[in-house]
Amino acid sequence: MKPAPFQYAAPESVEETVALLHAHGTEGKLLAGGQSLVPLLNMRLARPSVIIDLNRVRTLDYIREENGEIAIGAMTRQRTAERSPVVTRRLPLLADALPLVGHLQIRTRGTVGGNIAHADPSAELPAVLAALEGSVVVRGPGGTRRVAAHAFFVSYLTTALGPDELLLEVRFPAHEHQGSAFLEVARRHGDYALVGVGAVVTMAGNVCQRARLAFTGVGPVPVRIPDAEAVVTGKMVTDGVLAELGKLVTHMIDPTGDIHASAEYRKEVAGVLARRAIRAAAERARMKQMRMR
């Protein structure tokens, strides 16, 4: 289990990276934390002829607060984000999800940008970005552009990134005044979830003004279900409303099965988790309101 031969470069700036991508884009592969790519290389399931190692591009390692958003540089380690007070305070949904990304050793090396760009629909961070309606900033030979989460995730392991483009940063809207919860069912702690869901709700008293849900593991991209969100919106979060939500989620999603869980399992459990996540998020929102009073 040794990687096939490849050529290697370790650029030290975004500009050098863009130049490398421009020169080798289609045969090249960007290496960020490597926690998903290197296993594929070791198994020779991925055989890029050029590896462009981003780990020496120091300028992509930052966490900044900007206009109600938290901008996280693409090469920020997941562990750094997990330990960031800003993330803990202002991005509670991300703070909930990060400890579920693999294990400590994976997060030490794995990056926020790598996880997003890998676009595994079973992964947690894409769902967080989708639930928060965040965006990414992308740099290519044509300059930088901003892509909304829903446009960025195109299909299984496929994003809107062009072959000569580089993910620069991930922008998560701050949501410290909302209630949120990230729940998942995984075979074991640290596994990719069979099904997971990130939920964010805005509460006014006991009434849910706005609810967003993004699911992992149930489609080719993080899955949003506007109809299901609408079930909760403008209502009190009662058992009856939640039951209706769960049923609708189960009805509307269309996952595929694999050796760990059938499509039926995922449908059913997505409904269960949607219920539990909205309940938990609403509860947290109420706690925040009580603290603010």
């Binding site: 044509g142 552009r145 195109v154 496929t158 062009g162 990719y192």
Partner: peptide, 27 residues
Amino acid sequence: MKKRTGVVRRTTKARVVTPRRRNPVRT
């Protein structure tokens, strides 16, 4: 590697979407 459920279905990322270019800048 994170323990992922499901077999590895695809090896490398297929890039199917051509981005629209704005603000052309030479590198």
